[in-house]
């Protein structure tokens, strides 16, 4: 069963009098629990595709159905609600809220779900990523790797059906990057989450079950491992 179904998806930007097509007629089906990587050079449209899949933006044409929700028919706030229920994010630049502590950052998705045990659950997740003792630290007091670990804990907090990761190791050194990769894959396996990874790191992509090559806004290859 598809957790994410993309049909004839295109995205065009208007730049003055010029039309710029960044995605063209993309069709993808992703099964529940699948781990896939979207790879391609800079400017190929992979981040745009990720944004559209996660309902962060809407396409110019085509449809995206995420866990049964046709995203193009929902308004921004309805899409936000879908994101809160079904989606987790890991960003290249971590995107932690600077005014919140590590613990509070992880608590946000749980609180939005009105979970009474938000704090306990968040602490449990921080323990899993090895940062329980840094729970009260603010993002600026954490190293890059630590920030990304908080971000992973936050991404898994709402037990998402699908996790989107945009260059999760792009801002980290090799050693830390490997540790983060391991954490993501381990947690993903443990929770049975679907993973959509955007990267230009072919080594990292090779660790997934399926690689979609994208270039000039079009899918060049969709290969299963």
């Amino acid at each position: 069963m598809s957790i994410l179904s993309i049909r004839k998806l295109s995205k065009t930007y208007q730049s003055g009098s010029r039309k710029l097509t960044v995605l063209e007629n993309v069709n993808i089906d992703i099964k529940e629990g699948e781990m896939i990587a979207i790879v391609g050079p800079s400017g190929s449209g992979k981040t745009t595709l990720l944004g559209l899949c996660a309902g962060l933006d809407s396409g110019t044409e085509g449809s995206v159905v995420l866990n049964g929700h046709p995203l193009e028919k929902l308004n921004e706030d309805q899409r936000a609600s879908v994101r809160n229920k079904d989606v987790g994010f890991i960003f290249q630049n971590f995107q932690l809220l600077p005014t919140l502590t590590a613990l509070e950052n992880v608590m946000v998705p749980l609180e939005l779900k009105k979970r009474k045990d938000a704090k306990e659950k968040a602490l449990e997740l921080l323990e899993k990523v090895g940062l329980k003792d840094r729970a009260t630290h603010y993002p600026t007091q954490l190293s890059g790797g630590e920030q990304q670990r908080v971000s992973i804990a936050r991404a898994f907090a709402n037990e998402p059906k699908i996790l989107f990761a945009d260059e999760p190791t792009g801002n980290l050194d090799t050693e830390t990057g490997e540790m983060i990769e391991k954490l993501i894959f381990d947690l993903n396996k443990e929770k049975g989450t679907t993973l959509v990874l955007v990267t230009h790191d072919l080594e990292l992509a090779a660790k997934t079950q399926r690689i979609i090559h994208i270039k000039g806004g079009k899918i060049q290859e969709d290969a299963h491992a």
Partner: peptide, 9 residues
């Protein structure tokens, strides 16, 4: 980020 995490505008 908040919008991404599902907070209404």
């Amino acid at each position: 980020v908040l919008r991404c995490l599902g907070v209404a505008s």
